[in-house]
Design a protein around this nucleic acid. Sequence first.
DNA 1: CGTTATTGTCCGATATTTCAGACAATAAGC
DNA 2: GCTTATTGTCTGAAATATCGGACAATAACG
Lengths: 266, 266
Amino acid sequence: MSDGVTGLIETQAGAEPRNGERRRGIDRVIMLLEALLRHRAPMRVGDIAKMIGAPRSTTYEIVNSLLEAEMLENVGTEGYVYFGKAMHLFGWAYSHHNAHYRRIIETLDRLAAETGETVQLCGLRGNKYVVLDCRDSPGPFRISSDVGVEVPIPWTASGRLLLGHMSEQEIRDFIPPGDYTLPDGRVIAPAEFFGDVALARQQGFSETAALADRFTWCMAAPIRDGNGAINKTLCFVLPVDTPEARRSELLALLCERATGLSLAGS
Amino acid sequence: MSDGVTGLIETQAGAEPRNGERRRGIDRVIMLLEALLRHRAPMRVGDIAKMIGAPRSTTYEIVNSLLEAEMLENVGTEGYVYFGKAMHLFGWAYSHHNAHYRRIIETLDRLAAETGETVQLCGLRGNKYVVLDCRDSPGPFRISSDVGVEVPIPWTASGRLLLGHMSEQEIRDFIPPGDYTLPDGRVIAPAEFFGDVALARQQGFSETAALADRFTWCMAAPIRDGNGAINKTLCFVLPVDTPEARRSELLALLCERATGLSLAGS
DNA sequence: CGTTATTGTCCGATATTTCAGACAATAAGC
DNA sequence: GCTTATTGTCTGAAATATCGGACAATAACG
């Protein structure tokens, strides 16, 4: 392992341009792709260089290689690059390499079509929560977060389920302290969060109301793998004022479908 | 049906078979990912090393880096790796970075839901045809080819449209001579193919019956970009015995939707 | 119209990475 | 049981990819 700087790289500015430090091309590629993912929009080569702390000459070299491989693509008239077609194909191959994932996507589609609500498939990436795929509600409300954007685990209903296999101490070591602070400045007491996790494990679902923002009611249900562990969750993102009757109906549906997707009983 | 096509494996981006040559890590990464895409299944590190012609020690080094970045993922019990979660996120970012692509996907979903047929989104990758996304028919027939698998352009209806901007000479230079040979050994005369391309350009759609295999009727309609060029096509893959009435109904629908997705008039 | 930033390309030197091969530990053949 | 093949990890050493900086060509100022 490379000095375990993975945590630092994830954080915003990340690597500082330390003097005389020389990095491997592969690592540059990884940093570049992660930077593009965080930025979520085409970037110019110069900006990429700054963002990943690499010399411009090196960055040009790497970008040109990736362009040739169609892993990156020129966007717009001048100098902007973003992910390319090859990435799409690699990602598609990942999504469909097992029948289980395909069934999950079908369920996602069906849930969205039947209910008209926003549905998400969620999971962990390192010590953050990410949306893996989503179907947005066709209505005027578009409140879902973007696929691939990393969010602190305590901000989410799914996060409480995804940590179900961990002890209190493990959770304490796993979650960065700053992640208990919500976007509006409120702080979730760790003890309370541990209680939420335990409750979610016991109930087999998890709900949060107006947590990460003031407008959404989230409900999540676990998808278990062959060992009974929770790798992914299915969840609804509803307007916070959704009537209780509708909510419990949706929750029941969500749990039923998620259980149907699990490979081992609870 | 498509078993070991060893011949194609060699023909990647001018691989120089020179011995004792030292290659860059980045290039190894690119070769590795392309090899995984072609193989379409998890591979062991040793086999990857053979397939990309890299030393085992180097391959382990690279694979471990990519595993740490979640660009690859361990699959199964022992030693198999395949694309990882990061690839899914990169690919998703590619697919959704512009509103146009999102509209295309919505149309794909709607077409599939309304007709119950297999629908594909197709494009070019280098001098080959690839399926970029698809919705399989729910019926017993599953005849679509896999997303990301490269297919000779003359085998496909979409290919005839996607070459519409090229002169006869340009097409001649673009298509490898072997690509005119169909899987069953028949050979398409280049002159005939050029005629097909011209016809497709004039009609604004293209159809092939029992071409790449004996069971399918393919019809394709062009999606034009802002300059009027054809980057992508929408197409139906039907059983070859679909009645004529149904076929013309579907063709009309396909052309209408594809035109609606185009950014510039024909 | 000068002045300042930025872009894309090229260069030579050296700090690094790729590579071949050795190694133990399993697994597979016979 | 004995041989052969494979896996995953480590080494040292040589080849080279990364790097800083220079360069011309635009672009963005005021």
